[in-house]
Design a protein around this nucleic acid. Structure first.
Lengths: 201, 201
DNA sequence: ACCTGAACACCGTTCAAGT
DNA sequence: ACCTGAACACCGTTCAAGT
């Protein structure tokens, strides 16, 4: 039954998953759901638990800690982007922070082998995860948003823009999301681990 | 009429704002709404436009670009945190990215006076805003989430934790959100602007 | 031009009643 | 123990009809 709910959610999104629809697909009266799982709230909670277990696994590659952290970030991002409807539900349920937990440990290990300790390391762990997950959630909303291109272009093509024309031109265009994610992840990781090569062009 | 909708939203949250409820508060039939604004979708869009205008204003203080960027980030965060229901709606409507626009210009100026140009500056602008807004959105969900303290503590108090006990202890506790925001913002800004003093303890 | 009432197709949920 | 049907209180939305 949770399987069927999972299917509907993945295919039709959060709003497409209704108690009545689920019951229909199960060939059962709507009220039968209540006997098994309780509330719709309870249903969603059970689903979220399952999703978080699926999405928590991360891959780690590379030799030095900075490189390994970058691959962790990319892996997390890929997991999250792969199932947009699922993470939308997790976020709607206010359980996004729990998605951190699975990855916290592995991030902590890497920051430690980069030499961080105690309070600084703890802040680093949270900063890393918050940046990754926050970025991905924003990416997701960007994808499903009505592209407001006109507004942006208008903003940057006015005469009185006080900045470098090349910068203005670039800001008037859509950003390459992969490139941006890599850039900001790298910047943050380098800063956290103290790696100070600027050789990532 | 938008004023009343705004009030309801701010007081009761996204789910509390219904066409029928709004009509009742206006002393009018529910169907009258449709003549004036159209869909509920249209109603929400109009509300979002208004919210974005309110929240877009940022304050800038400080002398060097890094310091000024930090104050911009804090100011944005305060705006967003001040009206949780409103930003929840903006995010639900998929318009979160539009909240960037107002601040983009001022961030661009600061990065430019920090010496960044062209592609690097553009990436910097996006990285900065994505970090700030993503972080705040996650903070918000954390606040309204069911505190899963047990799970976290259990995770870090197990025997086989391979990391520094002090770090483990800190991760087992809730993080100070103000401190975390400042830390990560500062880290990112310093990295972006090339400021390399580690004198922010 | 502006508003109403009735009506429709949906929700989630409860509860007595059936097997 | 498991499921059904009827019923309730809600939604958003349409449309003919009123002034």
């Amino acid at each position: 039954m949770l399987d069927v709910a999972y299917e509907i959610l993945d295919a039709e999104g959060v709003d497409g998953l209704t108690v009545r629809g689920l019951a229909a697909k199960l060939g059962v009266a709507a009220t039968a759901i209540y006997w098994h799982v309780g509330d719709k709230q309870a249903l969603l909670d059970a689903l979220v638990d399952r999703i978080i277990a699926d999405v928590g696994e991360v891959e780690v590659h590379g030799t030095d800690p900075a490189e390994r952290l970058v691959t962790i970030g990319r892996s997390l991002r890929n997991n999250l982007l792969a199932q947009p409807h699922l993470i939308a539900l997790v976020h709607r349920q206010g359980r996004t922070p729990v998605m951190f937990l699975a990855a916290q440990r592995v991030v902590a290990e890497e920051l430690e082998s980069a030499g961080l300790r105690g309070a600084e390391a703890a802040l680093g762990v949270h900063a890393f995860l918050r940046h990754v997950i926050g970025s991905v959630i924003l990416e997701r909303t960007e994808e499903r948003a009505p592209e407001q291109r006109e507004t942006v272009e208008e903003l940057w093509s006015r005469e009185d823009v006080p900045i470098d024309p090349e910068l203005a031109a670039r800001l008037a265009q859509p950003v390459d999301r992969d490139e941006l994610f890599d850039f900001s992840l790298r910047t943050l990781v380098d800063a956290l681990t103290g790696t100070n090569d600027s050789a990532h062009e």
